[in-house]
Amino acid sequence: MTLRYLGKDPESPEGRSPTLYYDDERDTYVFQSWRVTDAERLAVLDLPEHETVIEFPRRMMRFFPEINSDATEVDGPRTP
């Protein structure tokens, strides 16, 4: 698996997460972000046992190449 770093939330405290990666083998995105643990919010979802839910800020949409044709890797390729 090759994860390609696409971007990190520029407003994240201490430059930590959320972070967005692209998996070029699976043609999917991988998010490192805040886990949703609020029971009330989870109750409205049809969430299978093998899945989880994360939350990420709308401002990070700019890192999706499909949204912003100018999106580039901020720090170059890297793997976690």
Results as ranks from 00 to 15, higher is better:
23 D>T: 10
11 E>P: 01
69 S>W: 01
32 Q>I: 13
42 L>C: 04
73 E>F: 10
57 P>D: 12
60 M>R: 02
50 H>W: 07
9 D>G: 03
58 R>S: 06
63 F>I: 04
27 D>I: 04
23 D>I: 11
1 M>D: 06
9 D>H: 04
78 R>Q: 09
33 S>T: 09
59 R>H: 08
55 E>T: 10
21 Y>P: 02
17 S>K: 09
23 D>V: 08
17 S>V: 12
58 R>Q: 05
69 S>M: 04
39 A>R: 01
15 G>P: 03
51 E>K: 12
18 P>A: 08
34 W>Q: 06
48 P>G: 05
77 P>W: 12
56 F>K: 03
37 T>C: 01
80 P>W: 15
34 W>S: 10
35 R>F: 03
79 T>M: 11
64 F>A: 04
80 P>K: 08
11 E>R: 10
33 S>E: 07
22 Y>Q: 03
5 Y>F: 15
68 N>I: 02
42 L>R: 09
79 T>N: 13
79 T>W: 10
77 P>G: 06
8 K>Q: 15
36 V>C: 12
79 T>P: 10
22 Y>W: 11
45 L>S: 02
72 T>Y: 09
5 Y>I: 02
2 T>D: 14
70 D>H: 14
15 G>C: 03
20 L>P: 04
9 D>W: 03
32 Q>W: 05
10 P>N: 04
62 R>Y: 10
20 L>A: 05
3 L>A: 07
58 R>T: 11
55 E>A: 14
68 N>A: 05
48 P>V: 01
47 L>W: 01
48 P>E: 11
6 L>A: 06
80 P>Q: 07
71 A>C: 11
80 P>D: 12
6 L>T: 01
63 F>N: 02
37 T>D: 08
21 Y>R: 02
45 L>H: 15
39 A>M: 02
54 I>M: 14
62 R>W: 07
63 F>R: 00
62 R>L: 14
27 D>N: 07
41 R>M: 06
15 G>L: 00
68 N>R: 08
49 E>F: 13
72 T>H: 13
20 L>Q: 07
78 R>C: 11
73 E>I: 09
11 E>A: 13
22 Y>E: 08
54 I>L: 15
17 S>R: 15
38 D>W: 09
18 P>R: 05
67 I>M: 06
80 P>N: 13
25 E>N: 13
25 E>D: 15
45 L>T: 00
65 P>L: 02
72 T>K: 13
27 D>G: 14
49 E>C: 05
47 L>N: 04
2 T>K: 11
21 Y>D: 02
64 F>I: 06
